[in-house]
């Protein structure tokens, strides 16, 4: 089966420092892939490189078999990216922002109307859609960014710390939606510091340290008989 996201020998250097060092990962359709590491390990850099936000020095990233460098537009049409901090266009109202995203992804009138209703009702922000985004709380902005990311029915969802700022109900709903998306053939690659969530939610897990991949595989194989927290702390201490 073709990988939906294929990261091969990815290297990104900032000045003298290698933020990501020869990292390779394969993410198959229908998989939820968790990406774990300490602060500054290279998670955000990797995710940004995968969605075309950041140029990288060597290696390659393929989305559904297409290189993000050679065919960025085709790749971006399949991807949704959710940043760690949802900085949106504050001067727009929530509904105008969603309409803007729908225009960019060329959704039909019916598709946008249906999906806005579905997701805004699900995350309970329908009433707030008429307000300017600058009046939103952090959590509401995060919900709006999630709706925008889900609206065009992406094949690959790249998320950086998606659960930060969400209330427990919204976190639960997002997890359910992630599972549903993957059931329908999409893939999700996300970073998190919440190890319990990663352990329960992810089909596969990768742990990165100092830009290098130190372990990856099916969640049960990575964890073994212990917990993800034990594995992570053990690997950190060992300096693997």
């Amino acid at each position: 089966m073709n990988s939906l996201l294929s990261i091969r020998q990815l290297t990104k250097v900032y000045g003298e420092k290698k933020a990501v060092d020869c990292l390779s990962l394969e993410i198959q359709p229908g998989e939820i892939y968790g990406f774990i590491g300490h602060n500054g390990a290279g998670k955000t850099t990797t995710i940004k490189a995968c969605c075309g936000l950041l140029e990288f020095d060597s290696g390659e990233v393929y989305v559904d078999g297409m290189s993000i460098r050679e065919k960025p537009m085709e790749c971006k049409r399949m991807i949704s990216y959710l940043p760690d901090n949802p900085d949106l266009y504050d001067f727009m109202t929530g509904i105008k922002y969603l309409n803007f995203i729908a225009d960019v992804y060329m959704l039909s009138a019916q598709q946008r109307t249906e999906r806005v209703k579905k997701y805004s009702d699900m995350f309970k922000i329908t009433e707030n859609l008429g307000q300017h985004i600058n009046s939103y709380s952090h959590g509401m902005k995060q919900k709006l960014a999630i709706i925008a990311a889900l609206m065009h029915d992406p094949k690959l969802l790249l998320m950086d710390e998606p659960f930060v700022g969400l209330d427990p109900k919204a976190s639960y709903l997002l997890k359910q939606e992630m599972k549903l998306l993957c059931k329908n053939g999409a893939s999700i690659f996300f970073s998190t510091h919440v190890l319990e969530v990663a352990e329960k939610l992810c089909d596969k897990i990768a742990i990165i340290k100092g830009g290098k991949l130190i372990i990856s595989g099916r969640t049960e194989e990575v964890i073994g008989n212990t917990s993800l927290e034990d594995v992570f702390l053990d690997l950190e201490d060992k300096g693997a």
């Binding site: 929530g94 509904i95 309409n99 729908a102 225009d103 060329m106 959704l107 039909s108 009138a109 946008r112 109307t113 806005v116 209703k117 329908t126 009433e127 707030n128 859609l129 008429g130 307000q131």
Partner: peptide
């Protein structure tokens, strides 16, 4: 309060 209406593409 947002009142739902059809969205124009």
């Amino acid at each position: 309060v947002y009142v739902e209406k059809p969205m124009k593409p």
